[in-house]
């Protein structure tokens, strides 16, 4: 990763947008940039169904969680839905410790997340 940027992929599956973060560390060094990207994407593209694919993220801290919460807030205020897909064990543990598993829906795979959003 070079400074002031981060690696990600965006895919569309019908009306579902899949954001895959291609970084091993989702921490303070990139969280601000991810927040900026989420804000632009979710406000300007009128996204209602959003998946964050965390399969490449080995490590996440509370600033990473804060970026995810921002996406959650924007979607909730637009009556949209979010799913977190394929979190690694470390990331899942952090979400559970922070008690955010009560609000953030977690799916084991992107396919499962897509199916759940399509069913709604």
């Amino acid at each position: 990763m070079s400074e002031n940027t981060f690696n990600y992929e965006l895919k569309k599956n019908g009306d579902i947008v899949i954001f895959k973060l291609n970084e091993r560390r989702f921490d303070s060094s990139i969280a601000g940039f991810v927040k900026g990207e989420f804000t632009i994407l979710l406000h300007t593209e009128d996204v209602k169904k959003f998946i964050i694919d965390l399969s490449e993220v080995d490590y996440c801290d509370s600033s990473g969680l804060s970026a995810i919460l921002l996406a959650f807030r924007i979607l909730q205020s637009n009556e949209g839905k979010i799913k977190l897909a394929s979190p690694t064990k470390n990331v899942k543990t952090l979400i559970e410790i922070s008690q955010l598993d009560r609000v953030l829906p977690i799916c084991n795979t992107v396919v499962e997340a897509v199916q759940e959003l399509q069913a709604n």
């Binding site: 801290d61 509370s62 804060s66 919460l69 959650f72 922070s98 009560r102």
Partner: peptide, 17 residues
């Protein structure tokens, strides 16, 4: 409150963790 998005923590999770 999980039902109240305004009450979700923006920060301050570090020391709790």
């Amino acid at each position: 409150d999980p039902k109240d998005i305004n009450s979700l923590p923006e920060g301050g999770m570090g020391l709790f963790i």
